[in-house]
Design a protein around this nucleic acid. Sequence first.
DNA 1: CTGAAAGCGCTAACAG
DNA 2: CTGTTAGCGCTTTCAG
Lengths: 345, 345
Amino acid sequence: MNERPIPPRRPMTLRDVSEASGVSEMTVSRVLRNRGDVSAATRERVLAAAKELGYVPNKIAGALASSRVNLVAVVIPSLSNMVFPDVLGGITEVLDETHLQPVVGVTNYSPEREEKVIYEMLSWRPSGLIIAGIEHTDACRKMLAAADVPVVEIMDVDGDPVDSVVGISQRRAGRMMAEAIIKQGFERIGFLGTQMPLDHRARKRFEGFTDALARAGLEVADQEFYSGGSSLQKGRLMTEEMLTRTEDLDFIYYSNDMIGAGGLLYCMEQEIDIPGRLGLAGFNGTELLDGLPRHLATMDAGRAETGREAARIIAARADGALTESRRIEIEPRIDYGDTLRRYKP
Amino acid sequence: MNERPIPPRRPMTLRDVSEASGVSEMTVSRVLRNRGDVSAATRERVLAAAKELGYVPNKIAGALASSRVNLVAVVIPSLSNMVFPDVLGGITEVLDETHLQPVVGVTNYSPEREEKVIYEMLSWRPSGLIIAGIEHTDACRKMLAAADVPVVEIMDVDGDPVDSVVGISQRRAGRMMAEAIIKQGFERIGFLGTQMPLDHRARKRFEGFTDALARAGLEVADQEFYSGGSSLQKGRLMTEEMLTRTEDLDFIYYSNDMIGAGGLLYCMEQEIDIPGRLGLAGFNGTELLDGLPRHLATMDAGRAETGREAARIIAARADGALTESRRIEIEPRIDYGDTLRRYKP
DNA sequence: CTGAAAGCGCTAACAG
DNA sequence: CTGTTAGCGCTTTCAG
């Protein structure tokens, strides 16, 4: 197809644009970055030459020379969780107004991978780092502290942050839900959740939950934890198992909306009276719930808001408008939906 | 909290490790990169010093000096679509075996954003670029061609690729589904999909679909397109509308599993005989479907496989094992589920 | 096995 | 408004 002998292509540099336009490299650089005053005529010539050549500046060299990098590292455990894309949405929304750009790294809930991802990210000297969770290995904390980069830990404020932190209190969220459930008169309460060692936030929610139950003289009547597979499917199957095993349950609290939805679908098929005979609640406030036959009760953890606030902190730190650590606690909000508020008996 | 007067912290460099270990910068560099022979003793000293200082190498400088960047740019339209995380999973799986690392950019189906994202990505001189779709603005194609970087366009092979391409033929996928539907004896077929100008893949599927219908002397009996909002909810509402408007429909083809699931849930509530009175099919083969009361028919587009193949091409190009463009067409596979195969009449 | 010198492509800082 | 001169922190290359 291509018959011209290909000359060994030397990567294009500023110099090429400089030569093509007859303007010094420095001025070309100014034009391309919109910095300093350049005459309209020169600007045009440079822009035309750059476009003609299809020149894309080398940010590696630029970053090295200016020690400025417009990247914000975002470290999250998973993309398939629904939750994290929402947070990312909030981050992007705010960063889009700035010159900063998010770069995503995924850890799959593995501490080793987290260390590696953070190391890789930091080695590009980003303008900031946003990371899900507040539990990290010592090595991670050390790196983050040593990096001299603004860090925002998100989605959990219960613990000792490295720098700034934005999110809900997961323990409090668990307590709030327990209290709401108890207030509606439910007493035989089961819990269905993700395997905890992996997910500190789910664990803390569960702890807050059992705490509040204990204070009311109750305890979890049955519990089970899963890992892997379709959450919807798991919710369905595990709900069936649990209801068979513990027949007198009158409530199931799920650690996320997806398994909750699975449970809800199962219950509706079985024509179980919801929430008369059995109440249900999930966690996250995902939009998925709007399409279910009944709206599952849930708790909005303010994911987009969390992302936005975290990004605002990074942006403010990057341009020097902010110099100290911040702590922003987002208020979780119970959504009663159709499965938590009991009909007056 | 911190009472020590903070000395104006100069970012840490190789030199610091060099001084701390009493070894030349060059040798430190060798140790940290595992290149060339270094005596075990020296290696230990260097490693200890680096760890002690919490040194993280500056990849910017490294990349500039070596003109090697271990980043692979991955450009996708959206993260909330279920589909793209799966592709990313495949990509990551393969790249994890190499020294390469994916970096994700999101375009929100906007050509302008796509241009910007590509430009930003290329300015970091990645080792390769994987991008969803085969339709790009001229500016994008020009940049990609000029960049001298291996490019893999994915998830659609119908068109003129810039370089390599991996994915299904969307037109063919549409045709296959139409043929399967016709074969089952359905005749009054509706289509419910996403707004098309944004999503070329959905458009091509639709075109292939109507093509195959036409060849069988049929046409789409009703159609509607949506944008925004919860897909599950939209599927429910739009299915209701369409069934009210066109009462004699005997099949609805959805452009993705999520709206399909919404439609399915609606139909089950209405106790519509599925697939006796009405057949349904979605697209993508998402694991979501496993948890539904009935398994929605769908088509597996080989997302993870697509991601893996794309990553393999980039990896092979990066280490010189491959020098030419490749074209890999993935075979889509119909999953009949419970909603497409009609009971023998 | 180890080190010294020269640059990667750009921008800061200064001088016209 | 435009150009010149030094690096940015590493790695390449070549000498010990």
